[in-house]
Structure formats: C-alpha cells, structure tokens
Amino acid sequence: MSLNRSDIPTDGDLVQRAKRGDEFAFGQLVERYQTASYAVALSVTGRHEDAEDAAQESFLVALQRLDECRSPERFAGWLMTIVRNRSRNLVRRESLRHTDQVPPGAQSLVPLPDRVAETLELREMLREGLAALPEVQRQIVLLHDLEGWKHREIADRLGLPSGTVRSHLHFARKALRASLSGMPAGPDLQRQVL
C-alpha cells in the first residue's frame, strides 16, 4: 500500500502531536531531521563525537521548548537554530577544557588494510577541507550532499536567500575539490574523490 502525499504528516502535525506527548510523532520528527541535525552539528564542531552529542541534545532541548516553536510548519529551521547554538556552546566548552587529544595519526598502531586506510585518509582530508570553509558553507554543503536537501529547502530552513545558498554551495565545492586535489594519495584515491 502506498502513501499519498496527503497521508504523510506535515511537520506541523507532528509537532502538535509531540506537544501532547505523542512518542511516535516525536520519533518521526527525530527520524526526519536526525541526519540534517548531525550535518549541521558536524559543520560547527568538526568532530563526530561532538556532533553526535550536540545533535542528540538538540532534539531533547527542542522537545522541552516545543511550546516556543511559534510556526510548527517551520520546525526544521527552528531545530537547526537550536543545533547550531548547542554545537557552538559545546565547541566553546571543549576549547575551555583543553583536553589532551589523541593526534589523528596515533589512533592505532595496528597496520590497517589498504582500503580502510585509504578511506580513513580520505575522511580525514574531507574534515580538513571542511574545516577550512566558513561555517555557513560547511553547513550548506553537508546539508546538500550528506542529507540531500535541495537548495530551496536549505534556504528556507537556514533563513537564507536561495541565490546565496547556491553561491555558497558552489564556492564550498570548489574549495573542497581544490583541497582534496592536493592530497598526497595515489591516483585511485584522487579519482575516487574527483
């Protein structure tokens, strides 16, 4: 049985139900926006663990403040603002804590298979490339390429003009490609990216 478009609950419907304590509705909201929240958190924190914490906490904060969401249909944009703020706070706390971090190259002494090592290297270079971008460009490129949001959705949910989103995406991709093309890897890896 296929669902009509009208059968799919809108964000507004889900928010109203979640306000009344409907666990299923809240779960649907989480499922709908978990990747986007993670992408935005990752764009701010740059670390998987921090992004995961910030994204998860943001959903809990959003639920507590759900009555403050004045336009339930615009829940996504409201949630992304919470995610951004939580992520920035987390980064601020982390920078104050000055914990000793394990250098990326010292994470494992066990030799890794080539393919895994290549993937890890690529992931690390992506992180570095992303870190060099302005925050808004990181958010846009991750929401577009990791979560699959369209330009208009990003513009609507981040409160930016659509043209600005396109422009940021263009420059972000160009910078990422440039950053990855300079990586000290074999031709296979470069082909994989570019």
Binding site: E31, H48, D145, L146, Q192
Partner: peptide, 24 residues
Amino acid sequence: DELAQALGLLDPAQQDPSYWVRFR
C-alpha cells in the same frame, strides 16, 4: 556527484548501518 559521494563518508551510517536507528 563524486564529491557528494566522498562527503557521504562522513555519514556515520557508512560504517555502522544501524547508527541512525540507535540514534533515534
């Protein structure tokens, strides 16, 4: 497309398919 594919490596579900289920 290839850049998007590469960025997909940052999706935790690439390494752990049940990641988002556990997250939720």
